[in-house]
Amino acid sequence: MSGDGFCNLVVALFAEARPLIERLHLVEAGDAAPFRLFQGDGVRLVVTGVGRLQAAAACGYLHRVGGSVRDDAWLNVGVAGHATLALGSVRWVQSVREAADSSVPNRWFPQWVGAPLCAAAPLLTVDRPVDFAAGTETAVDDRLPSELYDMECSAFMAVCSRVSSLELVHAIKVVSDNGASGTAEVTPARVTEWIRAALPVVERCVYDLRELASAQRRVLAAPSGEAELLQQHRFSVTQQRELTRLLRRWDALQGTSVLEYVAECADGRAVLSSLRTATEGQPL
């Protein structure tokens, strides 16, 4: 894939991570502290642990320490409860709401701009497990009984939507417990199998997100010739900004080698002057 867009996978449990690590050929990076990180071709994965705080910390860690940059894609993959959906059902999360009272906006709407991946469902993030088989779900919220329930996704959305845009931040959930099969019956082995079965959807999502992140990287990439010119000549900080702007204009208008065009320029000021002449005032 061109453009080198990255997709950051965020999972709570190692049992959820295992099939992703195997399928995407990820290898562990670093010393596993404070979070286990895995990396492969265009994909990073962090294992957060359970709960909102852990998820928020791990996303921040992956962004600052794990090498992620602005407008990388982010995907939260994991299991979730649901009142009625069959075990193993896979859902793209259409909206994320936080059950806890909060003074900050507590609802997010991921914007999927590819072909639909699978059926969609809303999700509610709670701080304590909800056991549908025990009939406790109404204690949390009875407004949307069709919601998925998890314990991390709102924190994932809150952090990742600060470092990327909502077209690039998504979640896919697999139903692990419902009204007929409670949380006590969720085992690591079953979690791994459910995620493994959902891999075709997850892989397609990762592919599409990487393509989107790559497109965004191309838009934001340094213009051609910038690195060379910064090495060849001295530019003040203000001049560097103007150089970037003029080189972008050059790329959009000319499509030829800028380095050849400014080869005779004696200094940075002459480069800028020459580029201004070549771009400003040009008709379409």
Partner: peptide, 22 residues
């Protein structure tokens, strides 16, 4: 997919959105 929201401003024109991608 029909997705409920309280007000359209929850979905439209939020800060973390990119017109070009959308």
């Amino acid at each position: 997919a029909v997705i409920p929201c309280e007000r359209y401003g929850e979905v439209f024109n939020r800060a973390a959105q990119n017109f070009r991608l959308q």
